[in-house]
Amino acid sequence: MRVSDKQFPEVYKIAKDLSQKIGFEEVPSIYIMQSGGMLNAFATKFLGRNFVIIYSDVLELAYKEGEPAVAFIIAHELAHIKRKHLTWRGLLYPAMLVPLLGPAYSRACEYTSDLIAAQLVPEGAIQGLTVLATGKRLYQKLNILEVINQSEEESGFWIWLSEKFSNHPNLIKRINRVYYETKVVIDSKGYQMQ
Rank of each mutant, 00 (worst) to 15 (best):
A118I: 03
K141H: 14
T182S: 14
R137E: 15
I32N: 02
P9R: 04
A71I: 09
I159W: 10
W160Y: 13
I148V: 14
L100C: 03
A62K: 01
L61R: 02
P94A: 07
N40Q: 09
L132G: 06
K164E: 13
G36A: 09
E146T: 12
N143W: 11
V52M: 01
K136M: 08
L92R: 11
I172K: 09
R89G: 05
Q34W: 06
A69K: 05
P9G: 06
V3N: 00
I175Y: 07
L91R: 08
L145W: 11
E60K: 13
A117Y: 01
P68Y: 02
G48T: 12
K136C: 11
W158G: 08
V98E: 08
E65D: 15
E152W: 04
V70T: 08
F8C: 03
Q140S: 13
I186K: 10
G135R: 00
Y93N: 12
E60D: 14
P103C: 06
E110P: 04
P28G: 07
A95R: 12
M193K: 13
Y139D: 11
I175S: 00
I53N: 03
R137G: 09
L101W: 14
R2S: 03
L132T: 03
V11M: 04
E146R: 14
I81H: 01
K64N: 15
G23T: 12
L100W: 15
Q192M: 14
L91D: 15
A118Q: 09
Y105W: 15
S56C: 00
L132Y: 06
Y105T: 01
S155Y: 12
Q7K: 00
S151K: 07
K84T: 09
G37C: 10
S188F: 12
K136V: 10
G190F: 11
A15Y: 03
A69T: 10
R174S: 10
N143L: 04
V27T: 11
Y55W: 11
Y179V: 01
M33R: 01
I14T: 11
Y191D: 13
I53E: 00
Y179W: 11
N167H: 14
Y179N: 01
Y111I: 09
P28C: 04
V184Q: 14
Y31E: 07
I81W: 07
I144Y: 15
A71C: 10
V121G: 03
L61A: 04
Y139P: 01
G36N: 07
T44H: 00
S19Q: 04
Q192P: 05
Y191N: 12
G156Q: 11
V178I: 12
F72W: 09
V185F: 05
E152G: 02
L100A: 06
A117H: 09
R83Y: 09
P68K: 07
F8D: 02
L115R: 15
V184Y: 09
K141P: 03
P122A: 05
T134P: 05
T130N: 14
A41L: 02
M38R: 08
I126Q: 07
G37P: 10
Q192R: 07
G37A: 11
V178G: 06
F72R: 06
Y180P: 05
R2T: 09
P94L: 06
S162T: 15
G135W: 03
H85G: 05
K141F: 13
R107M: 01
L59T: 02
R177L: 11
T182K: 12
E60G: 07
A62W: 03
F51A: 01
D187N: 15
S151C: 13
A125W: 05
L161G: 05
